[in-house]
Simulated assay, not measured.
Amino acid sequence: MRRNPFEELEEVLDRVSRQVEEGMTRGTGLPVPGDVDVDVADADDEYVVTADLPGYDTDDIELTLSEGSLRLEATREEADEYEGGRYIRRERTQRSVSRRIRLPEPVAEDEVSASYQNGVLTVRLPKEAGGEDATQIDID
């Protein structure tokens, strides 16, 4: 007995839908347009955020730290015309990406540093001191 082709199509669409949802919620599956792949590492005294941004210049990248979140935005402008000729094929177009990363603990905002090398952005966010300087509170 032959299967209904509409059932097969429905199964394929369900599978694709699950992959997209997984990509949005867990960082796996299909990539979400405008999203940036990042790693966030806890290096004891600091958080290190690494983001893949190939093809961007440092002037194209904007970092903002606000209310316990690091916001990364990058926009690559496209040239209207090729210098010295014309395009035969054009796939590298303007692209904007953004990502908001919620930090688990407060960071020392005045000590944050960032570097960009070979298409990889690295942001170092030192944790705010305070754990060792905590005051014991007696209960009466």
Results as ranks from 00 to 15, higher is better:
1 M>E: 08
2 R>P: 08
4 N>H: 13
5 P>S: 09
5 P>E: 10
7 E>V: 14
10 E>D: 13
12 V>R: 12
13 L>D: 03
15 R>Q: 15
18 R>C: 04
18 R>V: 06
18 R>H: 13
19 Q>F: 05
20 V>Q: 07
20 V>P: 00
25 T>N: 09
26 R>G: 02
26 R>Q: 12
26 R>F: 07
27 G>V: 01
30 L>P: 06
32 V>K: 15
35 D>H: 14
38 V>D: 07
40 V>G: 01
42 D>P: 00
42 D>L: 12
43 A>Q: 15
45 D>T: 09
50 T>N: 03
51 A>N: 01
52 D>G: 08
53 L>H: 03
56 Y>A: 04
56 Y>L: 09
56 Y>M: 06
56 Y>P: 00
57 D>K: 07
58 T>L: 09
59 D>L: 07
61 I>V: 15
61 I>M: 11
62 E>N: 12
63 L>S: 11
63 L>R: 02
64 T>Y: 03
64 T>P: 04
65 L>N: 02
66 S>F: 09
68 G>T: 10
69 S>K: 13
74 A>D: 07
79 A>M: 06
80 D>K: 03
81 E>Y: 14
81 E>R: 14
82 Y>A: 14
82 Y>D: 07
84 G>R: 06
85 G>K: 05
85 G>E: 07
87 Y>M: 05
88 I>W: 08
89 R>P: 02
90 R>G: 02
90 R>W: 10
92 R>Y: 09
95 R>M: 04
95 R>I: 05
101 I>P: 00
103 L>P: 00
103 L>A: 04
106 P>Q: 06
106 P>V: 05
108 A>L: 06
112 V>S: 02
112 V>K: 00
114 A>Y: 01
115 S>M: 04
115 S>I: 02
119 G>F: 01
119 G>Q: 08
122 T>A: 01
122 T>N: 02
123 V>K: 00
123 V>C: 01
126 P>D: 10
126 P>T: 09
126 P>W: 09
126 P>N: 13
127 K>Y: 13
129 A>C: 05
131 G>I: 04
131 G>N: 12
133 D>F: 06
133 D>C: 03
134 A>H: 13
137 I>C: 06
